[in-house]
Amino acid sequence: MNKSTDIHWYPLRVTYSRELLLKEFLDSDGVENFIPMRYEYVKKGDRKIRKLVPVVHNLVFVHTSLERIECIKQSPGFSLVVRYIIDRETHQPLIIPEVQMRSFIAVSGSYEEQIVYLDPEITALQKGDRVHITGGIFEGVEGIILRVKGDRRIAVCIQGVMAVATAYVHPSLIEKIED
């Protein structure tokens, strides 16, 4: 296997809040990518407007090879803007496992207001069972069960980057994953 041509999910830092500009460039180039978004109310004049904005500014998840990312970094306008998030143990660009990223997209891909984004340290400190959701809108998602704001939720963590928790999930839709 050639590490530079293998396709994985990579989280990238994008400086100067240009994440939506990078997304537009990647979309036009046919590169799969994801930015967690949510609705916010922004005041414009004396009116409040509901606007879709990134949950975390300067963060884009890209599904491609390191070789392709290097080409993107050399593209006009992105040479000083795009940076890897480095794994502290291996000192290599952080790779997100496919299953983990698909679960993360399934939860954070909806713009539902009941979704709660968490700091990864919060979920790392909680002792929870690994579970699989068997039905409902989050069917197929794998994560850790924990209590957030008084409700039982499933947290999907991307180690060292961020975590997202589902809305309340009924216990009948949760199946424990045995190690």
Rank of each mutant, 00 (worst) to 15 (best):
Q114M: 07
E67Q: 10
I85C: 03
I115F: 15
M101T: 10
K73P: 07
P54N: 03
I69E: 02
S79H: 05
L125N: 10
R83W: 08
E89V: 15
I96N: 03
D46Y: 11
Q126F: 10
Y117Q: 00
P76Y: 14
G45R: 15
Q114L: 08
E89P: 00
S103F: 07
Y117T: 00
E121N: 12
I115M: 11
Q74S: 11
T123L: 11
H57V: 09
P120R: 08
F104Q: 03
S75N: 03
G109A: 07
S110D: 04
P97E: 03
L80P: 01
I86W: 04
G109M: 05
N58F: 08
E121T: 09
E112G: 12
V60K: 01
V60N: 01
D129H: 12
V53Q: 06
R130F: 13
V60W: 01
R130V: 12
R47C: 13
V82N: 02
Y117I: 00
E121Y: 13
V62E: 02
S108T: 00
D119R: 07
K73Q: 13
I95C: 08
R83C: 10
S75D: 03
E112P: 02
R68M: 08
Q114W: 03
E89W: 09
F104W: 04
H57M: 06
V82K: 01
T123M: 11
V53L: 15
T64L: 06
Q114Y: 05
L59W: 12
P76S: 10
S75Y: 02
K48P: 00
V99R: 05
A124I: 07
R88T: 05
L66E: 12
D87T: 00
H91T: 04
E98Q: 11
Y111P: 15
P76L: 13
I105P: 00
E113A: 15
T90G: 05
V107A: 06
A124F: 10
Q92N: 05
F78R: 06
K73F: 12
V62M: 05
E98V: 11
Y111S: 15
E112H: 13
D46T: 11
P120E: 05
Q100I: 12
V56R: 12
P76G: 07
E70M: 13
